[in-house]
């Protein structure tokens, strides 16, 4: 049999397509998957968080509680939640720090390790941070193997047995909420204490906060305080320009907050 160019091309194309498209890729062709391209919003209830920075005193108890609750080694500098300090001086300089994620709290006026005279300070603000459990999490989008995912109730989790440790999700999180776990050596992140909230408990950080600066609850749930605050008060989110639709809402943010 002689081989015409056309036949060769045809076979070649078939072979290439066969290699190119593993069966899983066909998932994208299912009608419901196609629909999710057009309507990516979930309408049902999902978890959300409110941080009231006007109440935060920078004690760092939340960081401590989180590390112990979630078994993130205390003395290693990675954390699922942390507290940042922004101090603006009267000369206009802005000093920002978060030593060890503030797991030992702020006990001195020493932003970036420099002792500052209280008289020089114009204003200051403590900003607790945690995973924003985005509605459109870029970290999940870029995971090449499906080792991180959003649950139906809106929490982004990591499947540590499936993670290959490429770090693509870590580099794609605008909030730096992700890190490599020193325990499992895989990507790790705040889960909104998924093991607690699904049992009707509060998150560890919220429990540890004596000042009510942190609140967790369900969006679209009329009984939830979080839903009430978000729908009636003036809240803002961090870095909305990335289009991730973060679900941690802040009260009392400032222009100097990053």
């Amino acid at each position: 049999m002689s081989l015409s160019r056309r036949e060769l091309l045809k076979m070649g194309l078939l072979a290439v397509c066969g290699t190119v498209i593993p069966l899983s890729a066909l998932e994208i062709l299912k009608p419901e998957a196609a629909a999710s391209l057009i309507r990516p919003y979930s309408e049902h209830k999902r978890w959300a968080f409110v941080v009231d920075t006007t109440k935060c005193v920078g004690c760092g108890m939340c960081v401590k509680a989180c590390k112990l609750e979630n078994e993130i080694p205390f003395n290693i500098d990675v954390q699922r939640t942390w507290v940042e300090r922004y101090v603006q001086l009267k000369n206009g300089d802005v000093l920002i720090d978060s030593p060890h994620g503030a797991r030992n709290g702020y006990i001195k006026n020493d932003p970036q390790g420099k002792e500052i005279n209280e008289a020089e300070v114009a204003k200051g603000i403590f900003v607790p941070k945690l995973c924003n459990q985005c509605e459109k999490p870029s970290c999940v989008q870029v995971c090449p193997v499906g080792a991180t995912y959003k649950t139906s109730d809106g929490v982004v989790l990591v499947d540590k047995g499936w993670c290959i440790g490429c770090g693509y999700c870590i580099n794609n999180c605008p909030y730096l909420a992700r890190f490599f776990s020193p325990v499992t050596n895989t990507a790790d992140k705040c889960t909104f204490c998924y093991h607690r909230i699904t049992k009707g408990l509060n998150t560890a950080c919220m429990d540890a906060c004596a000042f009510g600066a942190r609140k967790i609850g369900m969006l679209n749930d009329p009984n939830s305080e979080v839903a009430k605050i978000i729908s009636t008060e003036r809240v803002s989110v961090l870095k909305p320009e990335y289009g991730n639709e973060p679900q941690v809402f802040y009260i009392g943010l400032d222009a100097i907050v990053r």
């Binding site: 990516p40 609750e69 959003k150 989790l157 540590k160 093991h195 607690r196 049992k199 560890a204």
Partner: peptide, 27 residues
């Protein structure tokens, strides 16, 4: 599987969700 047909954000092992739920409560 892609849960709810959401291949973009919910492509995962369903059993992994239970692993996250089963983590021990400490506080």
């Amino acid at each position: 599987t892609a849960k709810d047909g959401d291949y973009k954000y919910q492509w995962h092992r369903l059993s992994a969700e239970q692993v996250s739920k089963d983590f021990t409560v400490k506080h």
